[in-house]
Design a protein around this nucleic acid. Structure first.
Lengths: 244, 244
DNA sequence: ACAAAAGTGTTCCTAATACACCCATGA
DNA sequence: TCATGGGTGTATTAGGAACACTTTTGT
């Protein structure tokens, strides 16, 4: 009874509630020169003027969270949908995280192949307000709670890497096993044993050899590519944190 | 340049954006008679009148997401903070998930000891609009996208159970190993080998024996309790998905 | 003494780890 | 030919899975 009434009032008041703003923020990862990078934008106005911030924006009233994230991602990198990996990360909603007004942000993270990024994003970065920063060496001046968000994204990425083919989204179509190992080492921030790494990757059954070789250096390295069918995530464990 | 302007406009327009409502929904788990239960509320008005829905409510403008979830949880179960486990699950924001208006919900899940639930929530459930439902046998008539949310929560719970002490929040202070195994079997929905189960639990180092026994039945069973210090989650893997 | 649940030992097998070695190329 | 990175073999170990047995109580 009393509970019913409370419920009723609550619903009745829908329009009266002071509403927070809702944004989508993006942690966009790529790998450039074997370094894990995050895209950041220098803020040109207060609050946090001159600080670096994650790309993001308001959710439009008729688009889903994922659509909003895809739109943002497309705007910032020029990359087409289905050429990146995108996953919801966590929702950050401390009342004071934005000093202006109440903003709740649904953070996402994305993995993109640096070769597919629109030139205007990668070129002449020094003078631009949009820059790739080393994920393991972030600038001091990060706006809002974006440092937390980035670190959370890195944690998630490391975790996913262990039992998922997710890392492959960061590489180009053809790559050597050494490329792949370097990628893992960079993200996990630790050295891996060559033999064991290869065994693990092969056991995952996510890549296949081509007949091409990467010349240069010394002994040419066999090039691999992802299996056509996006790696079918098969085991019990693996399915656990698939995005909704 | 052009990017800067776009950004500027975006921020300038903050107040003009049509804002979605933001709610917190709760998947509250408990175990009653060795069955995993979820708390649901029968809706007394459209939309989905007569359907079952998760408890939830709007986020107040000055409280964090977690605070909102705690408040909701306290309202529904009467349980005090730090007597339950609470974790953000996922944010659901399809534009049409609520037919009335745009509502984004930050779903959480909670684990509570059924013995600590306020009597008014457990008593005389048949005639009440608040009921515990078997998590593995949900009612057909679930409102909104709440079936998805519940299933996602079950998936997360199963996953967490495998490498975390999270299940212990569902038990009372003292319990036997058989109680604990029954709990795991109910949540995971599978039979477990007694010997292996015990080895795994002991290796986690999360419980300790008392000197008490649970009499009744046949051979008395040794009672255990959680280690004083909440299980310090220690290994690499284990820290990965800790709540923010 | 026997049924029923509590509690323990041990084998088997897979998979991660830790090594050491061979191979193909460019300079 | 030798330095360099590409590529493979294998022994050891840790942990999960499968299974059989002993112990302690109530009746």
């Amino acid at each position: 009874m009393e509970k019913g009434e409370k419920k009723f009032l609550k619903e009745y008041d829908i329009s009266k509630f002071e509403r927070p703003s809702v944004t989508v923020d993006l942690v966009i990862f790529t790998v450039i020169d074997n370094e894990l990078k995050v895209l950041l934008i220098k803020r040109g106005m207060p609050p946090f003027e001159g600080y670096w911030a994650l790309p993001g924006g308001f959710i439009r009233i008729d688009e889903s969270l994922r659509e909003a994230a895809r739109r943002e991602l497309k705007e910032e990198t020029g990359i087409n949908p289905d050429e990146f990996y995108l996953e919801q990360l966590y929702t950050f909603g401390e009342p004071k995280r934005d000093p202006r007004t109440r903003v709740i942000t649904v953070a996402h993270y994305a993995l993109v192949d640096s070769k597919k990024i629109k030139p205007h994003v990668t070129g002449m970065e020094e003078i631009k307000a949009v820059q790739w920063h080393h994920a393991h060496d972030l600038p001091e001046k990060l706006a809002f709670d974006h440092k937390d968000i980035i670190n959370y994204a890195i944690t998630r990425l490391k975790y996913k890497l262990e039992y998922t083919a997710v890392g492959l989204e960061l590489l180009s179509e053809f790559f050597t096993l050494t490329d792949l190992q370097k990628l893992y080492e960079e993200i996990l921030n630790e050295k891996l044993d060559k033999r064991n790494f290869r065994k693990k990757i092969f056991s995952m059954d996510i890549i296949e050899a081509t007949k091409q070789f990467k010349k240069g250096g010394h002994r040419p390295a066999l090039l691999y590519k992802f299996k056509k069918a996006k790696p079918s995530i098969s085991t019990f464990k693996k399915t656990k944190f698939e995005q909704h």
